[in-house]
């Protein structure tokens, strides 16, 4: 029998169906959905990561220090994304679904351009990708990113630099579909 699921003892019955904390989390869902999708390779993976993150945020609410729920949730998402990425890297076939037309959304932009960008992003390590996304998409300051990821600001800068250079390089010669991340 799995006893692990509700190990945090945060009984659902203790809280009414919805409270302030849950409303705050709900308000963050759009931002979290976007960030989740920034970290993974496909829409279903993004929704899956979002679901994992919300679940974790709710079950860990007792550990939240009461300031900046958004940054805290983003940190949790970053760690979940990293854990997940390691799994995908070990089992690269899971990553192939990006090419199967699973995109549920109707995006206006050129699908070819989109998949080109996606492929370039998928070549980044999850650490570099997270930093790039937190800075560029989410607009966090370097110092915030350092705190969220518990790394020195110098590391933030070097990851950002690697991400930008690698992305530029990959967009330049977009002739390789990498299925396996090179060592």
């Amino acid at each position: 029998m799995s006893q692990s699921r509700n190990g945090d003892g945060e009984g659902a019955g203790e809280h009414p169906a919805s409270d302030r904390f849950e409303e705050d989390v709900l308000a963050l869902v759009p931002a979290l959905r976007r960030y989740a999708r920034c970290l993974v390779r496909s829409d279903p993976d993004g929704e899956d990561l979002l679901q994992d993150c919300v679940e974790k945020v709710l079950s860990r609410r007792a550990q939240w220090r009461g300031v900046n729920l958004r940054a805290w949730a983003f940190t949790i998402m970053t760690n979940l994304g990293r854990n997940r990425h390691r799994y995908v890297t070990m089992h690269p076939q899971v990553a192939l679904d990006e090419d199967l037309g699973l995109q549920a959304e109707d995006h206006e932009s050129d699908p070819l351009e989109r998949s080109r960008l996606e492929r370039a992003l998928n070549g980044l390590s999850t650490e570099n990708r997270s930093v790039l996304m937190l800075v560029v998409i989410e607009g966090y300051r370097y110092q915030d990113v350092a705190e969220m990821m518990a790394i020195p600001i110098g590391t933030v800068m070097s990851r950002l630099s690697r991400a930008r250079r690698q992305l530029a390089e990959a967009m330049k010669d977009d002739n390789v579909i990498s299925m396996r991340r090179p060592k």
């Binding site: 699921r5 509700n6 659902a12 919805s18 849950e22 989390v25 709900l26 869902v29 759009p30 931002a31 959905r33 976007r34 989740a36 999708r37 920034c38 993004g46 979002l50 679901q51 919300v54 679940e55 709710l58 079950s59 959304e105 995006h107 932009s109 989109r114 960008l117 790039l132 996304m133 560029v136 998409i137 930008r164 992305l167 530029a168 967009m171």
Partner: peptide
């Protein structure tokens, strides 16, 4: 790059009808 990335992911920052269910999905009801 930054412009392209923002455009690429902008559409995901949205609410879905099912979002509230995410809150309930915690633990047993999932």
């Amino acid at each position: 790059q930054a412009v392209e990335l923002r455009a690429h992911f902008a559409g995901y920052a949205r609410s879905d009808a099912g979002d509230r269910a995410l809150l309930l999905a915690n633990g047993s009801e999932r």
